[in-house]
Simulated scan of single mutants.
Amino acid sequence: MSRIGQSRIGLSSYAFFWQLSDQVSEPLSIHDALKKAANLGVDLFQICDYAPLEDMNDGDLAAVRRTADELGITLEVGTKGIRPEHLRKFLHIAGILGSDLLRTMFNVPGHTPGADEVVETFEEVLPEFEAAGVRIAIETYEQVPTERILGVVRRVNSPYLGICSDPANTVAALEMPREVIDAVEPYVLNMHIKDFAFSRKQGWVGFTYSGAPLGEGLLDYDYMVKKIRPKERNINQIVEHWLPWQDSEAETIRLENQWTQQSLDFLRSK
């Protein structure tokens, strides 16, 4: 499978997770986040699991698209769930925003579909996605074994259905990142880039599994890109973070911005 277009480094709304949330006194709007991305020299932004997106009407969505266009930013869209009506809603959103990719996951609260249901759903809706030129990328994550996700992708067997690679997620299911990278490599349409690490909890009782600045944790980035070859295959790399809340709002925002800049510097140096 190859990506249509150019391979680019982009930011996810997860790179501004805390600044977009109501945990801060003055949350960013999605328009603000796009402007921050542009100021960092980024021309690709993935609006991923951003709840307000679902409540926007077509006029609101068109306004987001106008902001992105004015800033020279291409948009991608991410959601969770595979119910047909939900996928069609996000196909509509993707159309207005100009996204040629929809990242999703199988499970949402109240709906954990089996493989047969997922296959049937994709076989039903993919012709509409293909007609619109929008691909679906299923993210690797701990709630669904990677091999089960790959089984669905293989059964559907469409260039419009593939994988959003994120080996950090699968560690929680005791799937080793390198093994996941090896398994998903032929099917990758999109990459989420975030580093991760274990740290001892207080008293050395157990561990915390959390984010780390890119290049300082356990993510073997060089191995991953050697296997997946995003530049050769024109696969976009989207920066995310797993940054825990710090001692204060100011410190959390400062560190979130620092991690974003470090991630961009790291990827641009490769």
Rank of each mutant, 00 (worst) to 15 (best):
L126Y: 01
H86P: 02
D100T: 07
L34S: 04
T208Y: 12
W204R: 15
E70W: 03
P159A: 13
Q23I: 15
G95Q: 04
R65S: 05
F207T: 10
A37W: 02
G162S: 13
R135E: 03
F16V: 04
P127W: 00
Y160H: 15
L214Y: 09
Q202N: 13
D265G: 04
A37T: 03
L189R: 07
L34R: 05
F129H: 00
P167Y: 14
A115H: 04
A37G: 10
A172H: 13
L53V: 05
L219D: 06
L97A: 02
Q258L: 15
T79C: 08
N57S: 09
S25R: 14
D55Q: 06
W242P: 10
M1C: 09
N190Q: 11
Y50M: 01
R66E: 07
S21D: 10
L87T: 00
F266P: 06
K226A: 13
A37S: 09
E232A: 12
G95K: 06
F122K: 02
L40W: 06
A38G: 05
C164P: 04
N236H: 09
P167W: 08
V42L: 03
Y50K: 00
T140Q: 09
S269H: 12
P244W: 11
V125A: 00
D247T: 13
G203Q: 11
G133V: 03
R3N: 12
I47R: 00
A33D: 03
P213Y: 14
K89E: 07
E128C: 01
G78R: 02
A115I: 11
V24D: 11
E185I: 02
L102D: 02
I136N: 02
E120C: 06
L189S: 12
V156S: 12
S158T: 15
E124I: 01
H111E: 12
A33F: 01
F45W: 07
D43I: 14
A172I: 09
Q202V: 06
W259R: 09
M176H: 09
